[in-house]
Write a protein that binds this DNA or RNA. Structure first.
Length: 116
DNA sequence: TTTCTGACGCCGT
DNA sequence: GACGGCGCCAGAA
């Protein structure tokens, strides 16, 4: 078989984040699915909270309903909102249109998700 | 060890 | 849409 070295969920998530195009978003659940953890959206949320996201585009992760999941009005909430607006993502109040902005992973991205 | 707590999602009112 | 309930599961208390 091919070398299937175990990669932690955190690693997978952190590796996937940079692949999300500017101006697009993904939901926690979608991200969980993409890294092989179906049904574990909360885990993704915890990873983003705990891990050092540094200059990664963590702001492109929103709830499946298209809402910013941080406490409304908090620093993080304002920051995520501003970053998305800066990328051209129209946010009405605390919500954006997932049908319009949700990222559909392309073939290149899918290949990058697999171990090289 | 047990219980509680979430950057969540899905499904049925 | 909005809400409530339940499943999920790793850390913290």
């Amino acid at each position: 078989m091919y070398d299937t070295k175990p990669v932690s969920p955190s690693q997978r998530v952190l590796q996937l984040l940079p692949l999300i195009p500017r101006g697009r978003v993904v939901s926690y659940g979608q991200l969980a699915d993409l890294v092989g953890l179906p049904g574990r959206a909360r885990l993704v949320g915890r990873i983003l909270r705990v891990e050092d996201t540094g200059n990664l585009p963590w702001h492109r992760v929103v709830s499946a309903a298209g809402r910013i999941s941080l406490p409304e009005g908090s620093d993080g909430w304002h920051e995520q909102r501003q970053r998305l607006l800066a990328e051209g993502v129209y946010i009405k109040g605390n919500r954006l249109d997932m049908r319009k902005y949700q990222w559909q992973p392309d073939l290149v991205a899918m290949l990058m998700l697999m171990d090289h």
